[in-house]
Design a binder for these strands. Structure first.
Lengths: 197, 197
DNA sequence: TATGCTGATTAACATAGGTTAAAAAGCAAA
DNA sequence: TTTGCTTTTTAACCTATGTTAATCAGCATA
């Protein structure tokens, strides 16, 4: 917990030290307080964000003002609206800070420039995208095949830390159920003697 | 409808003619009859497939033998289990031909080699992945926020051709409902005077 | 310590969609 | 054309989850 972008480049992407310095020249950073926004619906998403510390959330409102959580991003995760970022369209999503958060800002040309600097970066960057696709596919599988209880159990297993860091109603909105629904699921599990963590 | 890989390279990816020829050297092709498999659960997915003609489906069985459709792939689409392909694990998915299909086989080293041959290919390849992420995210939004009817209407709008080419029970399994459920949705829509196509 | 505010729980009731079973409709082979 | 198999539809009934509304718990601030 707490993972700088520099460490990410060195340890995960295996970028050699000189090139790390070069790539770090390309980025800037920003601090956001809990509750503040990095992206608001209607605006263009100018950056992909890398979370060094803290927790972000990508979500949208439906016509009735109900929120749906698309993604959580804790330390060392990337988050952004690729739709808006890539095609310069105004976004339908919001990105808020669930905790005080420090992010690295990656502008439009970042991936290309960094890829030219380091082949290892290029490979790792692609790997991350592939991984993202895997996760999304798994989530779709669960949504079309599993009950609310099964989805919650999977969430607990996959993101045990988020369970403590995000309020329950947000987790419910990620799972595609209501807060009351999640509360009921948890009560049923408690009856069956399930203990998280 | 009907779109060769060569045309894809030339017209979509903007690869120049000499390089098209070079890239074509890297690939092979295969014909599959309707109902036959390109990937079976338990085996490793050795290729990403590009559909030149026909229609494929990526799906899985749950414990009760019920099928869930993860993706359809008509002409000019890519399909494969990236999980298995990328990490050399045995796959949990199946890929079947819904129609007689002709596919281009892209082996593990294809993307790297082709990217070295053509920068345009590299860019377009990344664009495709980005696009895939967008689609998956949209599908998740729908699954957590929309009713069966809304999801079906979105499907009709987004993939009108698949409506005619895939049996209804497969579409139901893609939407995360039962065939009976989809039949009911269609009846309700008919009452409300909805006409597809 | 009182006063809000936000989040979590509970309970009663409503409903979308699942389940089961059967009938109907298509379609292909004999 | 009959037979058999697959797909779609229909209907009765059931259940998971939504809805509404109220209470409760935690936490911050006056």
């Amino acid at each position: 917990m707490e993972y700088t972008f520099r460490q990410f480049l060195e340890e995960k992407a295996n970028v050699v030290s000189d090139q790390v310095a070069e790539i770090m020249e390309l980025v800037s950073f920003q601090e956001v307080k809990k509750g503040e926004s990095l992206l608001e619906a209607g605006k263009v998403c100018d950056y992909i964000f890398f979370v060094e510390k803290g927790l972000l959330r990508l979500f949208l409102f439906n016509e009735d003002g109900v929120e749906y959580t698309i993604q959580f991003a804790p330390e060392s995760w990337f988050i952004g609206d690729r739709d808006s970022f890539y095609f310069n369209q105004s976004s339908i999503y919001n990105i808020d800070a669930i905790e005080d958060t420090r992010v690295i800002l990656l502008a439009k040309d970042f991936a290309n420039k960094a890829s030219e600097i380091s082949a290892n970066f290029r490979n790792y960057n692609e790997f991350i995208l592939q991984n993202h696709v895997r996760q999304l596919q798994k989530r779709i599988s669960l949504l079309i095949s599993a009950s609310a209880e099964e989805r919650y159990l999977d969430f607990v297993k996959t993101y045990p830390d988020l369970l403590l860091r995000a309020p329950q109603w947000m987790i419910a909105s990620y799972l595609g159920i209501t807060p009351q629904g999640l509360s009921r699921v948890r009560r049923e599990l408690a009856k069956k003697n399930f203990k998280p963590g």
